[in-house]
Computed example of a mutant assay.
Amino acid sequence: MTDVEHARLLVDVSRDYYLDNESKVDIAARHGISRFQVARLLAEARESGVVRIEISPPAHLDSDRARRLADRLGAREVVVVGSGGSTAATRESVARTLARVVGEHVREGATLGVSWSRTIELAVRHLAPLPACDVVQLVGALPVDGSGDSLDMIQAFRRMPGVRTWPVWSPLLVSDPGTAAGMRRQPEIAAALDRADGLDLAVVAVGAWTATGSTVFPQVTGDERRAATAAGTVAECSGRLFDAEGRRVVTPLDARVVGVTFDQLVRTPEVVTAGYGREAAPGLRAAVAGGIATTVVCDDAAASALEDLLDAATA
């Protein structure tokens, strides 16, 4: 067999096997050789470069992509999961991964702050028992149709052996600043919010300042929404508003919130935040820029939107 004939056989055998999914036995019969010769030819084709195999993991499994995104954002870590076929499926996927990430970060004796969102509520259901630690509720309750609230969630931690809880027995939003101030002075609530000064880790969610992106947005008045938007608000975290650069936005709404302050979150050494969908990207970027978040758990759609935002900023 000449060199040209051998090269042609390499190509034909490789095409039959890799592109047409034929078995080695069938390939051997067609070419009048043994299946062991077929195996040797396939190995030679890979070694010589006739066949080049490229493995391209899905975007949400591309760890290099997540590392590059973390570097560009200035985050310690970014974890990307697949976007589901529906909002509920995506939320479930993000929640499961958020539970894993939080579980990996909590150490015995730590003080963990937990905000509330529908994603965090789901994540707590998937959370493995934590080592002995303190869990501080960071915001009051915000009941939302189809889910529980932060008071239900804190009870899940209370049932874990060795875990002490510090609840906030209040709504997240109350009717007026005076009532909110009075709630914050209640001994149990004050104790919990004071504990937020010494958090080792917090888990929060970032909501875009839109009707669909935030559970807080629909709960406030039209005047409060317009005032927040006019002041540059792009997102909220635990009821605290911030702009595209992660700077705190103060509006009259701020005084009605019973929960962790913007500055307490910024002072927390490690803050894991979650978000999904393209709409979440500006808020996630701003949360990292402002020091509100150090680790981001998001879906592929949010990650792609973050990459687009970063590309636009450097164009």
Rank of each mutant, 00 (worst) to 15 (best):
125 R>N: 14
200 D>T: 04
77 E>S: 10
10 L>H: 14
46 R>D: 11
201 L>Y: 06
250 V>D: 12
49 G>T: 12
175 S>R: 13
211 A>L: 12
119 T>N: 04
110 A>K: 04
290 G>F: 06
66 A>P: 05
277 G>R: 10
9 L>H: 10
85 G>L: 11
64 D>H: 12
134 D>V: 00
161 P>Y: 09
295 T>K: 10
48 S>I: 07
306 L>S: 08
254 D>N: 09
226 R>H: 11
303 A>G: 08
259 G>S: 07
101 V>E: 07
135 V>S: 06
288 V>I: 09
166 W>L: 14
123 A>T: 06
4 V>A: 15
46 R>I: 13
163 V>Q: 11
306 L>A: 09
18 Y>S: 03
256 R>D: 03
70 A>C: 05
234 V>E: 09
282 P>F: 09
200 D>G: 11
289 A>W: 08
279 E>N: 10
148 G>C: 03
129 P>M: 12
269 P>H: 05
6 H>Q: 15
285 R>E: 12
241 L>D: 02
44 E>W: 00
258 V>S: 00
159 R>I: 04
82 G>K: 02
165 T>P: 07
258 V>R: 01
103 G>M: 10
214 S>E: 03
40 R>I: 09
291 G>Y: 05
99 A>F: 11
50 V>R: 13
214 S>G: 09
254 D>V: 10
98 L>T: 11
12 D>K: 14
5 E>F: 10
126 H>Q: 13
298 C>Q: 09
215 T>C: 05
243 D>H: 08
108 E>N: 01
269 P>C: 09
223 D>H: 10
160 M>V: 06
260 V>H: 05
63 S>D: 12
134 D>A: 13
25 V>G: 01
189 I>G: 02
155 Q>D: 11
54 E>L: 12
2 T>L: 08
79 V>L: 04
50 V>Q: 12
138 L>A: 09
110 A>T: 04
265 L>R: 00
189 I>D: 01
26 D>Y: 01
293 A>Y: 04
278 R>Q: 12
106 V>Q: 06
120 I>D: 02
86 S>H: 07
23 S>I: 02
92 E>I: 03
223 D>R: 14
7 A>K: 13
85 G>V: 07
154 I>E: 01
99 A>G: 09
258 V>G: 00
31 H>Y: 15
73 L>D: 06
71 D>N: 09
311 D>G: 03
159 R>C: 01
47 E>D: 15
241 L>S: 05
47 E>T: 12
92 E>D: 15
138 L>S: 08
287 A>V: 10
